[in-house]
Design a binder for these strands. Structure first.
Lengths: 216, 216
DNA sequence: CAGATAATTAATAGAGCTATTAAATAAATA
DNA sequence: TATTTATTTAATAGCTCTATTAATTATCTG
């Protein structure tokens, strides 16, 4: 209200500004707790403008996240840098997975939150995730079985191994607000902490499946 | 409307019925997505009745969860069955932790969800969690350091070890809707799955810190 | 049974939210 | 510059939700 000029200077493309702000707010509070009114307030524009550009709150959300959800999940699959050494395969899966998450630290929470609180609306995405996970598992399964047969890795299903990686990589991000509070972390400190934790995750996942000798 | 008698027979104590139903709905959808209207509908009573007994939605929520949040967290601390053997200490911590979670499978999601989407409202609870975690960590710290010094456990902070346990125990519950969908689990199958996974979690946590010899 | 108290409901105020519409303003174009 | 088109706003309809109130019905108690 006070400063139209400031807004103009900043925006130049209001549509994009709305997208930027909306992404932040959705990631911060989830779909249900986010109102178009609040997005407008943060952008500094009229609430109707959001509907002018995106018709509905749902379309805005979809524009931002539909692709992102799927690409986020499938990014894990794509990272199959084959290596002679199974240990290195595991390591590279964990690391590229961690890398993707660190670029979208709030996305895991959003996905889980939306799937949980509104499963019907996200059935389509859930279906895609299902496919992606399926192909990831079959991709790693043969290699894993070989290692088990060779006695280098203990008996474990590829799904359990997959869950170990997901759990250890994702949990800290999902519980980020709690962890930050418990440890008095600023945002930067939290990022530092997750970086340090990467090695911890690998040691745990690998130590949890390897048989003796090759732990280090 | 159609059957007052049926309702009377079932309820006998409507206040308690409201509490039961409300707990289910809150756990299912979170605070924001739950309306007193829906609770009333599921109970089969008038919406005003909920306010008659509990004044506000917030009071109802607090009555159900304030204690539960804290006791849930602190339950982990209390389970310090001292053992001569550190491996057994770790095992008993993991197992009692898993046991508590399996009795409140949706609570972890609710806690994280409310802390994330409305941190201000839950600052008090977050504070209590902080204290609890603090005492848990200091409780295990000396023992852990002894093991490391003795060369039986690799170098690891008690917080990292704590996070490993939390991550592996909690993630499957937090992501339950997704996991159930990906694997086509019914509720019973999911429960069975988590039971089987308990041993997996121990093997991973312990294998992730122990040094060689004592893996089995 | 009568009167009092408790439980329940219908009705509705009031707030916030999404989405639409019509009017106003800015930008583009001929 | 005049006219058309795009952007932005104010106003508001319509919905859902929380909470309150007043009236109704059931239960208890002397």
């Amino acid at each position: 209200m006070a400063n139209k000029k400031v807004r103009r200077e900043k925006s130049e493309n209001v549509e994009q500004m709305i997208l930027n702000v909306a992404e932040d707010v959705f990631l911060e509070k989830g779909y249900a707790m986010t109102s178009t009114t609040e997005i407008a307030k943060r952008v500094g524009c009229n609430q109707a403008l959001i509907h002018y550009y995106f018709r509905t709150k749902e379309r805005l959300f979809e524009k931002l996240f539909e692709k992102k959800f799927v690409s986020f999940i499938s990014a894990v699959v794509l990272s199959k840098e084959r290596s002679v050494n199974f240990r290195d395969v595991v390591r590279s899966i964990i690391e590229s997975h961690a890398e993707i998450i660190s670029q979208n630290p709030r996305l895991p929470f959003l996905i889980i939150n939306e799937m949980t609180t509104n499963p019907v609306r996200f059935r389509v995405i859930a279906e895609k995730i299902k496919d992606t996970v399926g192909s990831l598992l079959s991709g790693i399964d043969t290699e894993l079985k070989k290692e088990i047969a060779a006695g280098r890795v203990r008996e474990i299903s590829s799904f359990d191994l997959f869950l170990n990686i997901l759990s250890l990589n994702l949990f800290v991000y999902i519980a980020q607000p709690l962890i930050s509070h418990v440890r008095d972390y600023s945002f930067e400190e939290f990022v530092k902490f997750t970086k340090k934790r990467n090695e911890e995750v690998f040691l745990t996942v690998w130590g949890g499946i390897c048989i003796k000798e090759n732990i280090l």
